[in-house]
Design a protein around this nucleic acid. Sequence first.
DNA 1: CTTGCTTCTGTAGTAACTACAGGATACATA
DNA 2: TATGTATCCTGTAGTTACTACAGAAGCAAG
Lengths: 132, 132
Amino acid sequence: MKTQAIGELSRKTGVHIETIRYYEREGILPTPMRSAAGRRIYSDKDVRRLNFIHKCRGLGFSLKEINSLLSLVDSGEFTCKEVHELTIHHAGQITEKIFNLKKMEGVLQEMAAQCNQGNVPKCPIIDSLFDA
Amino acid sequence: MKTQAIGELSRKTGVHIETIRYYEREGILPTPMRSAAGRRIYSDKDVRRLNFIHKCRGLGFSLKEINSLLSLVDSGEFTCKEVHELTIHHAGQITEKIFNLKKMEGVLQEMAAQCNQGNVPKCPIIDSLFDA
DNA sequence: CTTGCTTCTGTAGTAACTACAGGATACATA
DNA sequence: TATGTATCCTGTAGTTACTACAGAAGCAAG
């Protein structure tokens, strides 16, 4: 399938139609081609871009940060130094997020294991996690 | 230090004073003790809880989801089965987040490495990442 | 006792959606 | 070809999760 309407883009990505139009207004998605009757037409490139945006949002990045990540992709007007700095900055953020999620994952799995043995666990999340 | 005012809690956690009061209104933080003059007094338990909430927000969890995570900690009114189900659900979410972040991390590190060699990288994020 | 900092309540503004309303368009089928 | 239903359009208003003030009161040091 080559092109698609907004509804199919929404179905493929799990992003609401209204949100897609909102992203367009905000300049995060490019203004798409229109059909003769004025309907938005999207390509598979848009599907990939929107998937990327959607997952980033779910990972706690702001639209501003996502724009900055996407700028790495969109443009050749960046110097290598700028790309490098942005990349390192984002990579640092990401490493920290992974670290925190792994901590949570470990605690939750431990709790689930305790439950399997029939004990209501004395939940250790707050006491063992995120003290600073 | 045993107890503290809202300003110190804010400094320790990096959460704005207004946001702390907002969390109290929304029932995510318990209503704290008050001084004779009516000022909020917090304990180190509150520091830990707020740190947890703050990090969760940064990882893309909604306040509703955080409440559900905290319910694992707060209450003895849950059956083992309920705790287990909630735990498994959240652990699944977390594993997926880690998976996506690791993908991003890999791509960004590759880009940074290319930059180090003096090439502006033909950024592969969208093409290699998040196709579904 | 005054000067400066912190806290209080309350309201209003912002970011990122989300949910209609009211109307046009597309498309399958009788 | 008529018609019903699904999809799309623009525009506006509501929601979530903050964020920023205004104006008053408390507290701590000199």
